[in-house]
Design a protein around this nucleic acid. Structure first.
Length: 462
DNA sequence: TGAAATGTTGGGGCG
DNA sequence: ACGCCCCAACATTTC
C-alpha cells in the first residue's frame, strides 16, 4: 500500500535533526503541515517571529508547507477524511494544553487506522527519562544536570531528509491568512534586526562557538561583552535543536569550563521543560504554595513605569527599553529587572511574566515561567527569598555604563560613576551635563533601601 | 546566578 | 617603643 505521511510541524521549524520529519520523509509521499491555533497562547513578538520562521521553512520545503488556522483536532479530522493519509508524525510538546490536544488527536488517528508516531525533537532528555533512584523527579538543578549528562544517549544529528515525494494540500491557506502580523507594536520593523530561520540559527551557533564560547563563563554576565549566544528564539521555535547545539559544542577541539558552562545553560532550558512537565500549572501557580498567601501590592503605576522603562533606575530602564526596542533582553538584566519588579515594587511575578511573554521573541512557556518563579523564590531550586538584587551594585559590578547609554540616551553624558545612580550626583554635576532629574529622567519610583527592607519583612512572614 | 550587617585583622598615624 | 585609634580589607553571619 502506498504510504502517505503527514509531518505536523509545531515547535520544530527545521529540516535538519528533526526525528519525526525524517521518519515521515521515508513514506512514498510526505505532507508537511503547520496549524496556527488561536487558542494556544502566543505573544505579539512571537507571532512576528513565527511568521518569518514559517516563511523560511516554506522556502526550504520548496513552497510545499500546507498551512491551516483553527482548532487542530477539527482541521486534522477534515484532513484525514479528504486525503488517504496512512501515517502521522510529530515531535512532542510538554505543556498541558499540547499534551491533552495530542492525546486526543492520537486517539482520533488510531481510531481511523492511521499510524501515529511522536518523537523527542526539542529536548536533550525528556522529563520522564530523568528521575531519581526512588522514581520521583529532581527538585534541584545540579543533581538533575549530573544525571542528564550521565544517562543522555548520544545521538548524531539527523541529516536533512530527501523526500520521495512532497505534497502541498489544496486547501492550505496562505501565510497572510494566519494573521500573524496584527501590529500591536512595531514588531515588523524590529524583527528586521534579526535573521530568522534554520540557516540563520546554524550560522549563529557557529559564530558563537568561534567568537564567544571560549570566554563565555565570565563574559556572559557583562551586557557590553556581547558574549551570549542569543540562540533562545531559534531554540524556542525549533529552528535548531538542543541536540545540534550539544553536538556542536562537543565536537570542538577542546572543551573547558567556558564551554561546559554553556552546556549548563542549555540544560537549564531542559530543566524548565522538566518543571513544566511535572508542574503543569507552572504558568499560573507558585510551585511553592507558601507563596500563595503573599500580599502583592500590584501597583499599576509601578508596573506601567517598569514596562515602559521609566522607573528612574537606569539599569532597569535600559533593560526594559532593550526589550521593547529589540524583542530581546540580556540574561543578566532579565534577572535584575525581574527582581526589581517582584521585590522592590511588590508586583506579582505573573504580571512581569505576562509582559515578557508578549514582548520577547524567545517567549517560551517553560523557560519564561520557570525563570520568573526562580527570581520570585517560589520555583524549583529557586533563589532564596532574601536574595534581593541591588540594581545599582549589579550595574556597577557588570559594567553596564555603555549599555545604559545605548538604551537610556538621556543619561549618556553622565560619568560611569553616576550613570547607575544619577540621584546621588550633586546638583552641579547634573547641571554640567544639563540633566534635570524628575524632568529629563525620572527620580527612582521606589526607594531601593526601604523597599528592600519591606520585601524582606513580608517574605519573612511566609 | 546577593547584599548588608557584623566581625576580625593588620598597617599606619599619632601622642 | 608602645598603646591607641582609625579604617580599609577581608571573612563570616544574617536576612
Amino acid at each position: 500500500m502506498k504510504k502517505i505521511a503527514i509531518h505536523w510541524f509545531r515547535q520544530d521549524l527545521r529540516l535538519t535533526d528533526n526525528p519525526a520529519l525524517s521518519h515521515a520523509s521515508l513514506a512514498d509521499e510526505t505532507v508537511p503541515i503547520f496549524i496556527f491555533d488561536d487558542n494556544y497562547p502566543i505573544g505579539g513578538a512571537s507571532k512576528l517571529w513565527l511568521d518569518n520562521s514559517l516563511k523560511s521553512l516554506n522556502n526550504s520545503l520548496d513552497d510545499n508547507l500546507s498551512l491551516y488556522k483553527g482548532d487542530p483536532l477539527e482541521i486534522i479530522k477534515k484532513l484525514i477524511a479528504e486525503n488517504k493519509i496512512t501515517d502521522f508524525y510529530w515531535n512532542r510538546c510538554y505543556d498541558k494544553y499540547s499534551i491533552a490536544r495530542d492525546t486526543q488527536i492520537k486517539k482520533l488517528l488510531e481510531d481511523s487506522n492511521i499510524t501515529v508516531k511522536s518523537y523527542n525533537g526539542s529536548l536533550l532528555l525528556e522529563p520522564w527519562e530523568c528521575t531519581k533512584d526512588d522514581g520521583t523527579h529532581y527538585k534541584v538543578y545540579t543533581p538533575f544536570y549530573k544525571t542528564l549528562m550521565r544517562i543522555r544517549p548520544h545521538r548524531s544529528n539527523i541529516t536533512k531528509p530527501s523526500f520521495n515525494k512532497i505534497t502541498k494540500l489544496k486547501d492550505s491557506v496562505d501565510l497572510e491568512n494566519l494573521e500573524l502580523l496584527e501590529p500591536s507594536h512595531s514588531w515588523q520593523g524590529i524583527i528586521k534586526q534579526w535573521q530568522v530561520g534554520e540557516d540563520a540559527a546554524v550560522d549563529k551557533l557557529e559564530n558563537f562557538l568561534d567568537e564567544k564560547a571560549s570566554r563565555y563563563k565570565k563574559s556572559r554576565d557583562f551586557m557590553c561583552e556581547n558574549a551570549t549566544s542569543t540562540l533562545s528564539p531559534h531554540l524556542h521555535f525549533g529552528e535548531i535543536s538542543p541536540n545540534q547545539v550539544f553536538n556542536a559544542v562537543y565536537s570542538l577541539d577542546s572543551i573547558g569550563e567556558n564551554e561546559e558552562h554553556f552546556i549548563k545553560e542549555l540544560a537549564w532550558r531542559d530543566f524548565s521543560y522538566y518543571q513544566l512537565y511535572y508542574y503543569p500549572n507552572l504558568a499560573t501557580k507558585n510551585i511553592n504554595s507558601k507563596f500563595d498567601n503573599f500580599e502583592w501590592e500590584n501597583d499599576t503605576d509601578l508596573l506601567k513605569a517598569w514596562q515602559i522603562g521609566k522607573t528612574g533606575i537606569p539599569i532597569v530602564d535600559a533593560g526594559m527599553r532593550e526589550l521593547w526596542e529589540t524583542g530581546y533582553m540580556h540574561n543578566r538584566v532579565r534577572m535584575i529587572v525581574a527582581s526589581f519588579l517582584i521585590k522592590n515594587c511588590l508586583v506579582d511575578w505573573r504580571k512581569g511574566e505576562a509582559w515578557f511573554f508578549d514582548t520577547l521573541f524567545d517567549a517560551d512557556i517553560a523557560s519564561n515561567n520557570a525563570s520568573w518563579q526562580w527570581v520570585a523564590g517560589c520555583g524549583l531550586d529557586a533563589a532564596p527569598y532574601f536574595r534581593i538584587f541591588n540594581p545599582v551594585l549589579q550595574s556597577d559590578k557588570f559594567e553596564a555604563a555603555e549599555y545604559i547609554r545605548m538604551y537610556v540616551p538621556e543619561l549618556k553624558s553622565l560619568s560611569d560613576k553616576y550613570i547607575s545612580k544619577p540621584w546621588e550626583a550633586k546638583l552641579d554635576i547634573l547641571e554640567e551635563v544639563s540633566i534635570k532629574l524628575g524632568i529629563d529622567y525620572p527620580l527612582p519610583i521606589v526607594d531601593l533601601k526601604a523597599s528592600r527592607e519591606k520585601a524582606l519583612a513580608l517574605h519573612k512572614k511566609l
